[in-house]
C-alpha cells in the first residue's frame, strides 16, 4: 500500500518525504488540507423548489445515502449552509427569494443547478412565468441535467463539485478574497423581473449568424 501524496505541488523527493513522515512530519500545502476538509463536508441547504426536490431527498435516504460523501447535513437555514442545490423550476415570483437566500449564505458557497428547469427553464421554458435559468442571477458551479435527474446523478454532481473544490486556490479564489459575495436581488414587477439578468454573472449568448465581416469572407 502506498501512502497518499499529502504534498502535491511541493518539490520534495520521495526519500526525504518518507524520512520526514517517519519523524512524524508531514509537509503539505494549506490549500490541500483546507480543500480536503471542505470538500469532505459540504453542507447543503434544505431547499426544495419542485419535482427535483423529491429526488434530492431520495439521494439523502438509505438507498443512495449522500452521507457517504460527507454531505448528509442538510441545513434549513442559509446561514449554516455551503451548498445551494437549486432543485426545480424557478419562477419569476420565486427568483428574488432564491437570490436573497444565496446572499445570506456565508462564504465559501457553491451552487448546483439541478434539473432542466433550473438550468434553462426546461419543459416550462415557453411559459410566461418561468425564469430561463438561475444562472442569470447567481453563479452556478455544476449544472446537473435531467428531468428530474436520478439520485445517482445528484451524487455525481456532488463529486464534480468536490473535484472543483480541490482545485481552489485560497489566495486567488473570490470566495476568500472579496468577502461575502452578494448579488442584486431582482424585483418582481408582477409580470416580469427587473432587471432581466445580472450582466455581472450572465450575458446573452452571441448570435452565431452575426459573424464579423472578415471572418465571413475568409
Amino acid at each position: 500500500m502506498t501512502t497518499p501524496n499529502t504534498s502535491p505541488g511541493i518539490d520534495l523527493d520521495d526519500t526525504t518525504r518518507a524520512e520526514l513522515e517517519r519523524a512524524g512530519v508531514i509537509v503539505s500545502k494549506v490549500d490541500y488540507l483546507y480543500n480536503w476538509a471542505r470538500g469532505g463536508s459540504v453542507w447543503p441547504l434544505t431547499f426544495g423548489l419542485a419535482c427535483c426536490a423529491i429526488e434530492m431527498i431520495a439521494s439523502a435516504t438509505s438507498r443512495f445515502d449522500i452521507s457517504r460523501f460527507g454531505s448528509e447535513v442538510f441545513r434549513p437555514t442559509p446561514r449554516q449552509a455551503d451548498l445551494m442545490i437549486v432543485s426545480g423550476t424557478v419562477t419569476k415570483k420565486m427568483a428574488p427569494q432564491v437570490v436573497r437566500i444565496y446572499n445570506q449564505m456565508p462564504e465559501p458557497k457553491w451552487v448546483i443547478a439541478m434539473g432542466a428547469c433550473a438550468i434553462s427553464g426546461g419543459p416550462f421554458k415557453q411559459g410566461y412565468n418561468v425564469l430561463k435559468g438561475i444562472d442569470r442571477y447567481i453563479p452556478v458551479d455544476v449544472y446537473l441535467p435531467g428531468c428530474p435527474p436520478r439520485p445517482e446523478a445528484v451524487l455525481q454532481s456532488l463529486n464534480y463539485l468536490q473535484e472543483k473544490i480541490r482545485t481552489q486556490d485560497i489566495k486567488s479564489d473570490p470566495a476568500f478574497t472579496v468577502g461575502r459575495r452578494q448579488y442584486p436581488v431582482p424585483e418582481f414587477t408582477g409580470t416580469d423581473l427587473e432587471p432581466p439578468y445580472n450582466p455581472e454573472v450572465w450575458q446573452p449568448p452571441a448570435n452565431p449568424n452575426a459573424q464579423p465581416l472578415e471572418e465571413a469572407t475568409a
Binding site: L49, A50, G88, T89, T91, K93, M94, Q97, F124, Q126, G127, Y128, N129, V130
Partner: peptide, 14 residues
Amino acid sequence: FGYLHRNHEKLAEN
C-alpha cells in the same frame, strides 16, 4: 401561493 406557477394550462392550450 403562486411561487411555482408554471403555466400548465396555457402551455397545454398551445
